[in-house]
């Protein structure tokens, strides 16, 4: 996997030939906190087209994860007020939250931030994966659904997938769990993946394998990815376009090489300086990890 920009449906200025998978216009999200109402997202606009990866990068508290959760309408109604336009495959989920519920797990799936807490601890991995498989394909009988689950685990390069189905979340490592969660997201056969800091809770060596897997799946399925990260190394590896976010607004947007190579904003330069090293993703570290069971303690 190369870190160089890949050719996509989107042109250099971010405009594309077809309709975008995700069209966000003037999105505003106000969070109701104990300290009062906070405008976490203050009028952002962007598109994600099929097969491309759009990254929102920013420090913690910049509103990037809130943007992702707002797009999926996963913020509790009593804690967040969402306005503006968010269209997933042309359906406006701001105007119609029920459309969001219908799209989740089908048109759009989430890869959550912390894989250790993203699965129910009292149900087996297989039970949770089979549930999603059956939600998407209600006609499948037990054996066929199980075969599909094994196929999905195999696709995210989990060794011995049949045995892993019986495992409980606490029996798997963080990297392994994130692969399971990616398999669950794929079970919905989504057109858009929202990856909310998918690697920030993982060991560095495991991170590379997960990102590599996401890019590989994107190549084979043409899924569009909205990537949320604070890590410029991650952004540089996966993105076609990057939006730099600060205090709820995009301060700089553009091609990944342009942002990394010639940042216009002082904020972006400070983000760049905070990254100790950008190398290491393309070499051995990224390729070795997936073949063996993850050995890191969870």
């Amino acid at each position: 996997m190369s870190a160089a920009p890949r050719t996509t449906a989107a042109g250099p200025d971010g405009t594309a030939a077809g309709a975008p998978l995700l069209r966000v216009r003037d999105l505003q999200i106000e969070l109701i906190t104990d300290a009062g109402v906070v405008r976490a997202v203050d009028g952002v606009s962007f598109d994600v087209h099929p097969g491309e990866t759009v990254t929102i990068i920013g420090e913690s508290g910049s509103g990037k994860s809130t943007t992702a959760m707002g797009v999926l309408r996963l913020l509790p109604d009593e804690l967040a007020v969402v306005s503006g336009e968010v269209a997933v495959q042309g359906r406006d989920v701001v105007a119609d939250p029920r459309a969001a519920a219908a799209l989740r797990g089908r048109a759009v799936s989430l890869i959550p931030q912390d894989p250790m807490t993203a699965l129910s601890p009292v149900h087996s991995v297989g039970r949770q994966l089979l549930e999603v498989v059956r939600l998407r394909r209600p006609g499948l009988d037990r054996a066929a659904a199980r075969a599909r689950a094994v196929e999905l685990l195999d696709r995210v390069r989990i060794p011995e997938p049949g045995r892993r189905l019986r495992a409980y979340p606490h029996q798997l490592s963080g990297g392994m769990l994130q692969r399971v969660l990616i398999a669950m997201a794929l079970a919905g056969e989504p057109a858009l993946l929202v990856a909310d800091e998918p690697t920030s809770a993982l060991d560095v060596t495991v991170q590379a394998g997960i990102l590599d897997l996401l890019l590989e799946l994107q190549e084979s399925t043409g899924v569009g990815i909205l990537m949320i990260t604070h890590d410029l190394g991650v952004a540089r590896l996966v993105s076609d376009r990057v939006h730099v976010m600060r205090n709820g607004r995009f301060v700089e947007s553009g091609e990944v090489e342009q942002i990394v190579g010639a940042p216009a904003e002082e904020y972006t330069r400070s983000l760049l300086r905070s990254v100790p090293a950008l190398g290491g993703w393309d070499g051995a570290a990224g390729r070795d990890e997936p073949a063996r069971p993850d050995g890191d303690p969870s």
Binding site: L74, L110, P112, D114, G188
Partner: peptide
């Protein structure tokens, strides 16, 4: 968090309450 994650996968609200 696992409940939000399950919701993002399209699990119904009644299943989230009673099963999860």
């Amino acid at each position: 968090p696992y409940l939000t994650a399950a919701r993002s996968r399209g699990v119904s609200e009644s299943a989230l309450t009673w099963r999860y």
